[in-house]
Design a protein around this nucleic acid. Structure first.
Length: 891
RNA sequence: GGGGGCAUAGCUCAGUUGGUUAGAGCGCAUGCGUCACAAGCAUGAGGUCGCAGGUUCGAAUCCCGCUGUCCCCACCA
């Protein structure tokens, strides 16, 4: 009974089983092994709002490839998983759910009950996401799984908040913030997305209080006029000098406001005069502060007009704009309208237009925190791969303004600030105080707001390892090695982790930021819910297997660039898995007798080179050995795509296409000793290939590995292959390459002459004297793979048979007698084509070698190679020309 | 307004520090049911590497400019 792989490659038949085996064996677990070096990645926590999408699949596959590779290299590899509570996004989803299912608002349900529902949501979707990670093959340590609102993370958040507060880096203030009227909360600058929109400038006259012409001001937001408190002009602006210090009238309101001077107005923009609305514009706010102006609000938190708008009170901001403009026009105050493209801020969650608004919020003072984060990138403690992303990082930090961290939401970390109702004292503390520290009053209430989600995710690399406690995990695994994330999230998250970590840990949270791109659809569009062009990774896994998906996501792309998702590529990756499957099945089959018992295999424990290796063995070993160093070098540089590509070539083009074919006659032959050697090499190379492919295609490689003899344990724990100096066989490589070139040319002749594979052919070969010795040992390969009945080696041209097609390869002339099949026009065309190619090459080479600059300045080795090439080509051309003369006569 | 990416075969893309005849997958053409694999095998066609300069003995690769295209950032006078 054969003990082999299933006949057909069917990933469904083993992927789940293999994953369970890994997980139950504890292979994913970080053990803080003192004899190993740590390698740590913290998983960017997916939001609990939904399912994993293709972007996660990419992100996770890259992390898993790195983790598995390092684990095999002998590191104590820890990939720490978790999920993010995603304050605003989850709150919106849960509120929606309550509204559709029960027809109630969150206010009707109340804070406590709402939070209970949110936790229910977390229980459902959090579990879904981890199941999806398992399907992908994520080798993360599930026993260390964390959640941004678990007990430890909560403590970390509170501790961090208190520390910053006590250092004066967190303050509460009344300032202009980004307000999303739909979500009903403030947002940080990072959460606002700018987009150019077509809009209008309205030029509106503010008449002089004295009945004069007054001043014309351009604005795109006339509805904010009700909150105007002044008109500012530049102090050196001659046009308005006569008005400075006087009042102008706010049209239709009967309210007079002063004309003031300030450095802020730009004389070249608009009319050079700016209406000052401190409560609804950040620049105006600053101007207002400088001049001690009032800060009235005319738009409220729901984007409706306040009482200040008089008759327009209660109108939506845009309804009011329309009505107000119409009234202004009627009264003749609108001087001009101008079409304009204006960058408008939108909410990153709901796209509603952001209203800059004066509001009392909590802020993090950024200047001092940003400095060390900038420094870390500049001095190399933190590096971005690819490098260009460092610019985004630095730009964001250099331009950063204070970070608004309070959110008017319920789902999140509630701000650890308490107010004494008696004396107004603010107490920031880890636990709720019972009495006021100032007045001893007992009427104490906690701040209603929660913290920005990114405030807690900024702590992720160390909160997940135990901070603020001084845990063993933190000591062993921190700082982490690499953070893998998309470029779209650098300023949201990466910068915050860096400055948060530098502040409390005094060390960067990770040394490398490995940045990847976005997954796009077949047409190059971003995958999005609204376009409905998203592809569910689980469906793809179901269809093609996780390995094919992983391989597609990690190869054929360059680091940091977006990747287009196509079924074509997916299919070719699946085909590759299938190829490996069948090749492995073939190898395993040939290692066993009819009863499925393993046959004897040569012992390689003393080193593969101790065996009686044949030329093809040496060639294969040398090729695989080269691949080991190339692949490892690519991995070291995070060039996963190149590494994966090289494994592919090794497996398909070198092992399957050539080595297996070359070795077949030996497997079926009678030489028992030689058979054992062939088996040993087949297994050695196969297991090395499986190891190097394992990070990319963990399932299939593990499954195959389980069927190989002489392996104990699992591939996931196996050693990464290392370069072996002894496996460098230049002579054998040269011989085998000659054999391959000859075989190719014979196959070419066969194809050109329409001599199908079943047609038995013989060959006559005339080597140059110096190639003769090299030719002898490879004739067997040529005969076998050229599908020849016999090969005759001749020493003299006179022995060349009459009716032949011919080719010249590296100083070896090959003649194939074809008798009735010989078609001279075809042969003539073939030879002429070859002649033209050689002549072109020779011309180019002569040009190069006659250039004194090249000969004088290029490295000796390069010149020597070119010389050899020229000599070789000349000889080959000579021989081709001779053949042309002969064939021409036959035409 | 500021910054960045990309432009290579019909399509989607690789191409590490400049150095053989610029590669792959898919597609295309021809042949092949050969006992691991038709999700395969063999052979082949197909590219003046966006345009114009420069550096160099040598440029797809480095520099400058241009064109096209995509993206990011930017407090809406």
């Amino acid at each position: 009974m054969a003990n082999n792989l299933e006949k057909n490659y069917d990933p469904k038949g083993f992927e789940d089983r293999i994953y369970k085996m890994w997980e139950e064996s504890g292979a994913f677990r970080g053990t803080r092994d003192p004899n190993k070096k740590p390698f740590t990645i913290v998983m960017p926590p997916p939001n609990i709002t939904g399912q994993l999408h293709m972007g996660h699949a990419l992100d996770h596959t890259l992390q898993d490839v790195l983790t598995r590779w390092k684990r095999m290299q002998g590191f104590d590899a820890l990939w720490l998983p978790g999920s993010d509570h995603a304050s605003i996004a989850t709150e919106v989803k849960v509120a929606d759910k309550i509204r559709t299912e029960e027809g109630k608002t969150k206010e009707e349900i109340g804070r406590e009950e709402f939070l209970r529902r949110a936790w229910e949501w977390k229980a459902t979707y959090g579990g879904m996401i981890t199941d999806q990670c398992r399907k992908l093959g994520d080798s993360c340590d599930w026993e260390r799984e964390r959640f941004t609102m678990d007990e430890g993370c909560n403590r970390a958040v509170t501790e961090f908040f208190i520390r910053l507060y006590e250092k004066g880096l967190i303050y509460k203030g009344n300032r202009i913030i980004n307000w999303c009227p739909s979500c009903g909360t403030s947002l940080s600058d990072a959460e606002v997305e700018h987009e150019d929109k077509n809009a209008k400038y309205y030029y509106i006259r503010y008449p002089g209080e004295d009945g004069g012409e007054g001043i014309v001001v351009a604005t795109s937001r006339p509805e904010t006029m009700f909150a105007d408190v002044a008109i500012a002009v530049h102090p050196e602006d001659e046009r308005y000098r006569h008005l400075v210090g006087k009042n102008v009238m706010l049209p239709l309101t009967g309210r007079a406001i002063p004309v003031i001077t300030d450095s802020y107005p730009d004389r070249t923009k608009g009319t050079g005069a700016v209406k000052i609305t401190p409560a609804h514009d950040p620049n105006d706010f600053e101007v207002g502060l400088r001049h001690g102006l009032e800060q009235p609000k005319c738009i409220d938190e729901t984007a409706k007009m306040t009482a200040l708008a008089g008759p327009y009170e209660g109108m939506d901001r845009y309804v009011c704009r329309k009505a107000w403009l119409s009234d202004l026009k009627e009264a003749g105050f609108v001087v001009k309208e101008e079409d304009m493209v204006i960058p408008l801020g939108g909410c990153y969650r709901c796209s509603d237009v952001i209203e800059p608004m004066l509001s009392e919020q909590w802020f993090v003072r950024m200047e001092e925190l940003a400095k060390p984060a900038i420094e870390a990138a500049k001095n190399g403690d933190l590096s971005h791969v690819p490098e260009r992303f460092e610019k985004i990082y630095l730009h964001w930090l250099e331009e950063i303004r204070d970070w608004c961290i309070s959110r008017q939401l319920w789902w999140g970390h509630r701000i650890p600030a308490y107010y004494c109702k008696d004396c107004g004292e603010i107490i920031v503390a880890a636990t709720a105080p019972t009495v006021c520290t100032t007045c001893s009053g007992s009427h104490i209430v906690q701040d209603e707001d929660v913290l920005d989600t990114w405030f807690s995710s900024g702590l992720w690399p160390f909160s997940t390892l135990g901070w603020p406690d001084n845990t063993e995990d933190l000591a062993y695994y921190y700082p982490t090695d690499v953070l893998v994330t998309g470029y779209d999230i650098i300023f949201f998250w990466v910068v915050r982790m860096v400055f948060s970590a530098l502040e409390v840990m005094g060390e960067v949270p990770f040394h490398h930021v490995y940045v990847h791109g976005l997954v796009r659809d077949g047409e190059g569009r971003k995958m999005s819910k609204s376009l409905g062009n998203g592809v569910d990774p689980l469906e793809i896994i179901d269809q093609y297997g996780a390995d094919a998906l992983r391989f597609m996501l990690t190869t054929g792309i360059s680091p940091g660039s977006d990747l287009r998702f196509t079924h074509d590529r997916l299919e070719s990756c699946r085909n590759f898995a299938n190829k490996l499957w069948n090749a492995s099945r073939f190898v395993i089959m040939n290692l066993q007798d009819e009863d499925g018992e393993f046959l004897e295999i040569a012992d390689i424990s003393a080193g593969i080179t101790q065996l009686a290796l044949r030329e093809e063995d040496k060639w294969m070993l040398a090729k695989a050995n080269d691949a080991v160093s190339e692949i490892t070098a690519h991995m070291d540089r995070y060039d996963l795509a190149l590494a994966g590509q090289r494994v592919y070539e090794l497996i398909w083009n070198e092992y399957c296409d050539w080595y297996i074919e070359l070795v077949k006659p030996r497997l079926y032959g009678d030489d028992e000793v030689d058979k054992k050697v062939a088996r040993a090499v087949l297994i050695k190379i196969l297991s090395d290939m499986l190891a190097m492919l394992h990070p990319f295609m963990p399932y299939i490689t593990e499954e195959i590995y389980g069927f190989l003899p002489n392996t104990d344990g699992m591939l996931i724990r196996a050693d990464w292959p290392i370069y072996d100096k002894a496996a460098d066989f230049p002579d054998a490589v040269e011989k085998m390459e000659l054999a391959m070139a000859i075989i190719r040319s014979i196959r070419n002749i066969r194809a050109e002459a329409d001599a199908g594979p079943s047609r038995k052919l013989r060959a006559v070969i005339l080597p140059e004297a110096k190639k003769k010795a090299m030719l002898e040992p490879i004739l067997g390969y040529v005969k076998h793979l050229g599908n020849l009945t016999e090969i005759t080696v001749i020493e003299d041209k006179a022995e060349v048979p009459e009716e032949v097609m011919s080719a010249v390869v590296d100083g070896v002339e090959i003649f194939i007698p074809l008798d009735d099949l010989l078609d001279y026009p075809t042969e003539f065309a073939r030879l002429k084509k070859e002649e033209a190619r050689l002549e072109g090459d020779i011309q180019r080479l002569i040009g190069k070698l006659e250039n004194p600059g090249f000969v004088g300045k290029a490295p000796e080795q390069v010149v020597a190679i070119e010389r050899d090439k020229l000599a070789q080509n000349k000889e080959t051309l000579e021989k081709i020309k001779e053949r042309i003369v002969i064939v021409e006569k036959k035409l």
